[in-house]
Amino acid sequence: MSVTVSMIVNGKSVSAEVDPRTLLVDFLRVDQRLTGTHVGCDTSQCGACVVHVNGKSVKSCTMLAAQADGAEVATIESLAIDGQLHPMQEAFRQNHGLQCGFCTPGMIMSALDLVNVNSNPSEREIREWLEGNLCRCTGYHNIVKSIQAGAEAMSEV
């Protein structure tokens, strides 16, 4: 049993025959070789797998690839252009917003969705928004600082 899925991933049309059980995260990592999106807990709690589907952040470990048929998907790989980091990525770099880096792709994709709905988030709003993103290096403080700086940099562009 297989199902045909077609979607736009990082601006590129892709299509594949997959087992209906294929999770979106596995489709991205295994079929599309986009390994920037991580699988942490695999139980929709940690947020390492956050990508955007039709402009909204979702946990790609809790979505079937088939559910994304016809959608526009954006992963962490879509952000840097010609080696130039996205302002949110640059802010994480400048503010030491990562240690091991495992949670970072999810943190950044989640942060960008926050900036989409709230271009000037307060520290409290950022902390509340990160409810679904876990960092086990205890780096939240600098992650919050990074997101604040990233939001600010994005508003200046």
Binding site: V58, S110, D113, G132
Partner: peptide, 9 residues
């Protein structure tokens, strides 16, 4: 409910 990503789905 849940977190922002859960609320989006």
């Amino acid at each position: 409910i849940g977190d922002p990503q859960v609320r989006n789905k």
